[in-house]
Amino acid sequence: MVLSLGVICLVGSGLLAGVYVLTKDPIEAAAEAKTNNAIRQVLPEFDGVPEQKTIETDGGTISYYVASNAGEVIGYAVTASASGFSGPVSLMVGITADGIVYNTSVLSQSETPGLGAKCTEPAFADQFKNLNPAATKLAVKKDGGDIDAITASTITSRAYVAAVNNALAIYQAIVSGGVPDMSTGASVPTEDPAAQSAADTAAAQTAGDTAAAQTAEENK
């Protein structure tokens, strides 16, 4: 009795190990193809394979990709995520060498179908195409920013914006060589009311900072 169950378990796991070895490469290839497609989507034309690098942040090690054309760096593809409605929203954000967000692509999200899941659709995502972070307030309109939130999915929209902000912070750190300050971006999508008001203040602060920066620029 025990013997036959043992034999079945043994044969079963042997079979599994076999299929695992067989499909290991295609699974890795599929994952790699997904990343590469995402990079190609979020950056202008580049040659060769983008170079993968990593950067240390207070939240752990984050990998990013450097794309170059004829030896010249044309942009960075950064993976960044923020907490959405039912889990993390994780994005590939392409930022060109002059600091413009070229495009974004959703790597994974588990938002509600028909509501938050619409963040993958062009109607929302295209707002982040060719976006100059210096000229746009990166926050949803409800928080005083320039981004139209998805109808009835403010939390997802905030998460998307926060992820883009995180990516920009990482980009700044890559370019300047410092540690990215992701505190503002990360706290925005929090669903806790207390944290929410804090996030609102933070958003207002960001807005204030931008305004201050603009004034400073005008004064120059």
């Binding site: 907490s83 959405g84 889990g87 993390p88 929090t190």
Partner: peptide, 10 residues
């Protein structure tokens, strides 16, 4: 398998 947020980082 799933990452949770629960009001903080995933």
């Amino acid at each position: 398998t799933k990452e949770f947020t629960f009001g903080g980082e995933p």
